[in-house]
Amino acid sequence: MQNKRAIFGAKGLPYLLLAPQLIITAIFFLWPAGQAIWQSFLREDAFGIKTTFVALENYRYLFHDPSYLNSLKVTVVFALSTAALSMGAALILALAVDRMLRSARLYSTLLIWPYAVAPAIAGVLWWFMFNPTIGILPYLLEAVGYKWNHALDRGNAMTLVVIASAWKQISYNFLFFVAGLQAIPGSLREAAAIDGAGPVRRFWTITLPLLSPTTFFLLVVTIVYTMFDTFGVIDAITEGGPAQSTNILVYKVYQDGFVGLNLGSSAAQSVVLMGIVILLTVIQFRFVERRVNY
Protein backbone atom coordinates (compact mmCIF):
# COMPACT_ATOMS: atom_id res chain seq x y z
CA MET A 1 0.00 0.00 0.00
CA GLN A 2 1.34 3.39 -1.00
CA ASN A 3 1.77 5.92 1.78
CA LYS A 4 1.70 9.67 2.18
CA ARG A 5 4.58 11.44 3.84
CA ALA A 6 2.49 14.17 5.42
CA ILE A 7 -0.50 13.01 7.43
CA PHE A 8 -2.87 14.11 10.14
CA GLY A 9 -2.65 12.85 13.68
CA ALA A 10 -6.25 12.62 14.89
CA LYS A 11 -7.12 9.44 16.79
CA GLY A 12 -10.85 8.83 16.51
CA LEU A 13 -11.59 10.74 13.32
CA PRO A 14 -10.45 8.15 10.75
CA TYR A 15 -12.76 5.53 12.29
CA LEU A 16 -15.63 7.96 12.13
CA LEU A 17 -14.90 8.65 8.46
CA LEU A 18 -14.71 4.97 7.63
CA ALA A 19 -17.71 3.92 9.70
CA PRO A 20 -20.53 4.35 7.12
CA GLN A 21 -18.73 2.37 4.44
CA LEU A 22 -17.64 -0.39 6.83
CA ILE A 23 -21.04 -0.74 8.48
CA ILE A 24 -22.79 -1.06 5.13
CA THR A 25 -20.17 -3.53 3.93
CA ALA A 26 -20.57 -5.61 7.07
CA ILE A 27 -24.38 -5.67 7.06
CA PHE A 28 -25.09 -6.03 3.37
CA PHE A 29 -21.98 -7.79 2.05
CA LEU A 30 -20.07 -9.79 4.63
CA TRP A 31 -23.03 -11.01 6.68
CA PRO A 32 -25.06 -12.23 3.65
CA ALA A 33 -21.96 -13.79 2.10
CA GLY A 34 -21.30 -15.62 5.36
CA GLN A 35 -24.93 -16.70 5.46
CA ALA A 36 -24.65 -18.06 1.94
CA ILE A 37 -21.57 -20.08 2.83
CA TRP A 38 -23.18 -21.46 6.01
CA GLN A 39 -26.47 -22.16 4.23
CA SER A 40 -24.62 -24.07 1.51
CA PHE A 41 -23.64 -26.72 4.09
CA LEU A 42 -27.24 -27.21 5.24
CA ARG A 43 -30.24 -28.94 3.77
CA GLU A 44 -33.86 -28.13 4.60
CA ASP A 45 -36.58 -30.74 4.42
CA ALA A 46 -39.58 -30.24 2.16
CA PHE A 47 -41.62 -28.40 4.79
CA GLY A 48 -38.86 -26.10 5.98
CA ILE A 49 -39.13 -27.44 9.53
CA LYS A 50 -35.88 -29.34 9.98
CA THR A 51 -32.44 -28.35 8.74
CA THR A 52 -29.57 -30.79 8.81
CA PHE A 53 -25.88 -30.22 8.37
CA VAL A 54 -24.83 -32.04 5.23
CA ALA A 55 -21.28 -30.69 4.77
CA LEU A 56 -20.34 -30.70 1.09
CA GLU A 57 -23.36 -32.73 0.01
CA ASN A 58 -24.99 -29.72 -1.72
CA TYR A 59 -21.86 -29.14 -3.79
CA ARG A 60 -21.49 -32.81 -4.67
CA TYR A 61 -25.11 -32.87 -5.74
CA LEU A 62 -24.68 -29.64 -7.72
CA PHE A 63 -21.83 -30.92 -9.85
CA HIS A 64 -23.72 -34.11 -10.63
CA ASP A 65 -26.90 -32.25 -11.51
CA PRO A 66 -27.39 -32.24 -15.31
CA SER A 67 -29.36 -28.97 -15.20
CA TYR A 68 -26.50 -27.21 -13.37
CA LEU A 69 -23.89 -28.57 -15.74
CA ASN A 70 -26.10 -27.43 -18.59
CA SER A 71 -26.28 -23.96 -17.02
CA LEU A 72 -22.47 -23.87 -16.82
CA LYS A 73 -22.20 -24.78 -20.48
CA VAL A 74 -24.85 -22.23 -21.47
CA THR A 75 -23.01 -19.53 -19.52
CA VAL A 76 -19.71 -20.28 -21.28
CA VAL A 77 -21.33 -20.25 -24.73
CA PHE A 78 -23.24 -17.07 -23.90
CA ALA A 79 -20.22 -15.24 -22.48
CA LEU A 80 -17.85 -16.16 -25.29
CA SER A 81 -20.36 -15.43 -28.08
CA THR A 82 -21.29 -12.07 -26.57
CA ALA A 83 -17.63 -11.17 -26.10
CA ALA A 84 -16.74 -12.17 -29.68
CA LEU A 85 -19.67 -10.29 -31.21
CA SER A 86 -19.43 -7.09 -29.15
CA MET A 87 -15.63 -6.88 -29.24
CA GLY A 88 -15.41 -7.70 -32.95
CA ALA A 89 -17.98 -5.08 -33.89
CA ALA A 90 -16.44 -2.54 -31.52
CA LEU A 91 -12.95 -3.08 -32.95
CA ILE A 92 -14.13 -2.58 -36.54
CA LEU A 93 -15.96 0.62 -35.57
CA ALA A 94 -12.97 1.86 -33.57
CA LEU A 95 -10.61 1.27 -36.49
CA ALA A 96 -12.95 3.24 -38.73
CA VAL A 97 -13.27 6.11 -36.26
CA ASP A 98 -9.50 6.18 -35.84
CA ARG A 99 -9.21 7.23 -39.51
CA MET A 100 -11.59 10.14 -39.06
CA LEU A 101 -10.35 13.59 -38.24
CA ARG A 102 -13.26 15.95 -38.02
CA SER A 103 -16.20 13.54 -37.74
CA ALA A 104 -14.71 11.29 -35.04
CA ARG A 105 -16.51 13.03 -32.20
CA LEU A 106 -19.89 12.98 -33.89
CA TYR A 107 -19.64 9.28 -34.73
CA SER A 108 -18.50 8.50 -31.19
CA THR A 109 -21.50 10.27 -29.68
CA LEU A 110 -23.81 8.33 -31.97
CA LEU A 111 -22.20 5.04 -30.98
CA ILE A 112 -21.72 5.25 -27.21
CA TRP A 113 -25.19 6.06 -25.92
CA PRO A 114 -26.45 2.43 -25.67
CA TYR A 115 -24.21 2.15 -22.61
CA ALA A 116 -26.89 4.10 -20.76
CA VAL A 117 -29.73 1.75 -21.72
CA ALA A 118 -30.61 -0.69 -18.93
CA PRO A 119 -30.06 -4.38 -19.79
CA ALA A 120 -33.74 -5.07 -19.10
CA ILE A 121 -34.81 -2.33 -21.53
CA ALA A 122 -32.35 -3.62 -24.15
CA GLY A 123 -34.00 -7.01 -23.70
CA VAL A 124 -37.48 -5.56 -24.22
CA LEU A 125 -36.40 -3.68 -27.35
CA TRP A 126 -34.85 -6.73 -29.05
CA TRP A 127 -37.67 -8.96 -27.89
CA PHE A 128 -40.04 -6.60 -29.69
CA MET A 129 -37.94 -6.57 -32.87
CA PHE A 130 -37.76 -10.36 -32.94
CA ASN A 131 -41.32 -10.99 -31.80
CA PRO A 132 -42.46 -13.97 -33.92
CA THR A 133 -45.91 -12.56 -34.69
CA ILE A 134 -45.32 -8.86 -35.30
CA GLY A 135 -41.55 -8.38 -35.19
CA ILE A 136 -39.82 -6.81 -38.15
CA LEU A 137 -36.88 -9.21 -38.32
CA PRO A 138 -38.84 -12.49 -38.28
CA TYR A 139 -40.91 -10.95 -41.09
CA LEU A 140 -37.77 -10.34 -43.15
CA LEU A 141 -36.38 -13.77 -42.27
CA GLU A 142 -39.57 -15.40 -43.41
CA ALA A 143 -39.17 -13.70 -46.77
CA VAL A 144 -35.95 -15.68 -47.25
CA GLY A 145 -37.59 -18.84 -45.98
CA TYR A 146 -36.48 -18.98 -42.34
CA LYS A 147 -39.00 -19.46 -39.58
CA TRP A 148 -37.86 -17.56 -36.47
CA ASN A 149 -39.26 -18.43 -33.09
CA HIS A 150 -37.11 -17.86 -30.03
CA ALA A 151 -39.87 -19.11 -27.73
CA LEU A 152 -39.50 -22.61 -29.15
CA ASP A 153 -36.11 -22.86 -30.80
CA ARG A 154 -33.10 -23.12 -28.46
CA GLY A 155 -30.61 -21.77 -30.98
CA ASN A 156 -32.83 -18.80 -31.80
CA ALA A 157 -33.24 -17.97 -28.12
CA MET A 158 -29.48 -18.01 -27.50
CA THR A 159 -28.84 -15.92 -30.62
CA LEU A 160 -31.33 -13.32 -29.47
CA VAL A 161 -29.96 -12.91 -25.93
CA VAL A 162 -26.42 -12.74 -27.35
CA ILE A 163 -27.42 -10.00 -29.81
CA ALA A 164 -29.26 -7.99 -27.16
CA SER A 165 -26.38 -8.26 -24.66
CA ALA A 166 -23.70 -7.51 -27.25
CA TRP A 167 -25.63 -4.50 -28.57
CA LYS A 168 -25.42 -2.87 -25.16
CA GLN A 169 -21.74 -3.69 -24.63
CA ILE A 170 -20.43 -2.46 -28.02
CA SER A 171 -20.31 1.14 -26.80
CA TYR A 172 -18.06 0.30 -23.86
CA ASN A 173 -15.64 -1.83 -25.90
CA PHE A 174 -15.63 0.81 -28.64
CA LEU A 175 -14.52 3.56 -26.24
CA PHE A 176 -11.64 1.49 -24.88
CA PHE A 177 -10.53 0.33 -28.33
CA VAL A 178 -10.47 3.95 -29.53
CA ALA A 179 -8.35 4.91 -26.51
CA GLY A 180 -6.07 1.93 -27.18
CA LEU A 181 -5.65 2.85 -30.85
CA GLN A 182 -4.81 6.44 -29.99
CA ALA A 183 -2.07 5.22 -27.67
CA ILE A 184 -0.24 3.46 -30.52
CA PRO A 185 2.52 5.79 -31.76
CA GLY A 186 1.90 6.97 -35.29
CA SER A 187 5.58 6.57 -36.12
CA LEU A 188 5.29 2.77 -35.98
CA ARG A 189 2.60 2.67 -38.61
CA GLU A 190 4.39 5.26 -40.72
CA ALA A 191 7.59 3.24 -40.63
CA ALA A 192 5.70 0.13 -41.70
CA ALA A 193 4.01 2.06 -44.49
CA ILE A 194 7.36 3.32 -45.79
CA ASP A 195 8.58 -0.28 -45.79
CA GLY A 196 5.70 -1.09 -48.06
CA ALA A 197 3.18 -2.73 -45.70
CA GLY A 198 -0.42 -2.13 -46.78
CA PRO A 199 -3.28 -1.27 -44.39
CA VAL A 200 -4.31 -4.91 -43.88
CA ARG A 201 -0.77 -6.09 -43.18
CA ARG A 202 -0.20 -3.16 -40.80
CA PHE A 203 -3.32 -4.12 -38.88
CA TRP A 204 -2.19 -7.71 -38.32
CA THR A 205 1.48 -7.03 -37.60
CA ILE A 206 1.36 -3.73 -35.69
CA THR A 207 -2.07 -2.56 -34.57
CA LEU A 208 -3.47 -5.86 -33.32
CA PRO A 209 -0.40 -6.95 -31.29
CA LEU A 210 -0.10 -3.51 -29.71
CA LEU A 211 -3.79 -3.60 -28.85
CA SER A 212 -3.46 -6.89 -26.98
CA PRO A 213 -3.47 -5.32 -23.48
CA THR A 214 -6.72 -3.52 -24.28
CA THR A 215 -8.18 -6.63 -25.87
CA PHE A 216 -7.36 -8.80 -22.89
CA PHE A 217 -8.74 -6.27 -20.45
CA LEU A 218 -11.97 -5.93 -22.44
CA LEU A 219 -12.32 -9.69 -22.66
CA VAL A 220 -12.30 -9.99 -18.86
CA VAL A 221 -14.67 -7.04 -18.41
CA THR A 222 -17.08 -8.36 -21.04
CA ILE A 223 -17.11 -11.82 -19.47
CA VAL A 224 -17.88 -10.28 -16.07
CA TYR A 225 -20.64 -8.24 -17.73
CA THR A 226 -22.25 -11.24 -19.43
CA MET A 227 -22.08 -13.33 -16.29
CA PHE A 228 -23.57 -10.85 -13.84
CA ASP A 229 -25.15 -7.84 -15.53
CA THR A 230 -27.25 -9.57 -18.16
CA PHE A 231 -29.86 -10.78 -15.71
CA GLY A 232 -32.31 -8.19 -17.07
CA VAL A 233 -31.78 -9.28 -20.67
CA ILE A 234 -32.50 -12.92 -19.85
CA ASP A 235 -35.46 -12.11 -17.64
CA ALA A 236 -37.04 -9.82 -20.23
CA ILE A 237 -36.57 -12.09 -23.25
CA THR A 238 -36.51 -15.77 -22.38
CA GLU A 239 -36.68 -16.28 -18.60
CA GLY A 240 -34.06 -18.98 -19.04
CA GLY A 241 -36.01 -20.99 -21.60
CA PRO A 242 -36.85 -22.68 -23.85
CA ALA A 243 -35.85 -25.94 -22.18
CA GLN A 244 -33.12 -24.27 -20.04
CA SER A 245 -31.23 -23.19 -23.15
CA THR A 246 -30.54 -19.66 -21.87
CA ASN A 247 -30.55 -20.36 -18.13
CA ILE A 248 -27.20 -18.78 -17.20
CA LEU A 249 -25.72 -19.28 -13.72
CA VAL A 250 -26.90 -15.98 -12.24
CA TYR A 251 -30.42 -16.58 -13.47
CA LYS A 252 -30.42 -20.10 -12.06
CA VAL A 253 -29.41 -18.87 -8.59
CA TYR A 254 -32.41 -16.58 -8.65
CA GLN A 255 -34.78 -19.22 -10.02
CA ASP A 256 -33.74 -21.96 -7.61
CA GLY A 257 -33.72 -19.59 -4.66
CA PHE A 258 -36.77 -17.40 -5.18
CA VAL A 259 -38.97 -19.49 -7.43
CA GLY A 260 -37.91 -23.03 -6.49
CA LEU A 261 -37.10 -22.19 -2.85
CA ASN A 262 -34.27 -24.70 -2.83
CA LEU A 263 -32.19 -22.76 -0.33
CA GLY A 264 -29.25 -25.12 0.13
CA SER A 265 -28.63 -25.54 -3.56
CA SER A 266 -29.11 -21.84 -4.28
CA ALA A 267 -26.61 -20.97 -1.56
CA ALA A 268 -24.07 -23.46 -2.92
CA GLN A 269 -24.53 -21.90 -6.36
CA SER A 270 -23.97 -18.45 -4.85
CA VAL A 271 -20.72 -19.62 -3.31
CA VAL A 272 -19.53 -21.09 -6.62
CA LEU A 273 -20.37 -17.78 -8.32
CA MET A 274 -18.47 -15.84 -5.66
CA GLY A 275 -15.47 -18.04 -6.38
CA ILE A 276 -15.74 -17.22 -10.09
CA VAL A 277 -16.01 -13.47 -9.38
CA ILE A 278 -12.99 -13.57 -7.08
CA LEU A 279 -11.00 -15.42 -9.74
CA LEU A 280 -11.95 -12.91 -12.44
CA THR A 281 -11.19 -9.95 -10.14
CA VAL A 282 -7.77 -11.33 -9.32
CA ILE A 283 -7.01 -11.84 -13.02
CA GLN A 284 -8.14 -8.30 -13.75
CA PHE A 285 -6.05 -6.79 -10.96
CA ARG A 286 -2.90 -8.73 -11.71
CA PHE A 287 -3.27 -7.58 -15.25
CA VAL A 288 -3.64 -3.93 -14.28
CA GLU A 289 -0.31 -4.12 -12.46
CA ARG A 290 1.57 -6.01 -15.13
CA ARG A 291 0.14 -5.29 -18.55
CA VAL A 292 0.47 -7.84 -21.33
CA ASN A 293 3.33 -6.41 -23.30
CA TYR A 294 5.87 -7.06 -25.97
Binding site: I27, F29, P32, A33, Y254, L273, M274, V277
Partner: peptide, 17 residues
Amino acid sequence: ITLMLPVEVRILPTYKV
Protein backbone atom coordinates in the same frame (compact mmCIF):
# COMPACT_ATOMS: atom_id res chain seq x y z
CA ILE B 1 -14.24 -7.41 -0.83
CA THR B 2 -17.39 -5.56 -1.89
CA LEU B 3 -15.87 -5.44 -5.35
CA MET B 4 -16.07 -9.19 -5.53
CA LEU B 5 -19.65 -9.68 -4.44
CA PRO B 6 -22.14 -8.25 -6.93
CA VAL B 7 -25.69 -8.18 -5.65
CA GLU B 8 -26.85 -10.81 -8.14
CA VAL B 9 -24.50 -13.33 -6.56
CA ARG B 10 -25.61 -13.09 -2.94
CA ILE B 11 -29.17 -12.19 -3.75
CA LEU B 12 -31.09 -14.49 -1.41
CA PRO B 13 -29.20 -13.85 1.86
CA THR B 14 -29.12 -10.10 1.18
CA TYR B 15 -32.85 -10.14 0.61
CA LYS B 16 -33.26 -11.89 3.95
CA VAL B 17 -31.21 -9.23 5.73
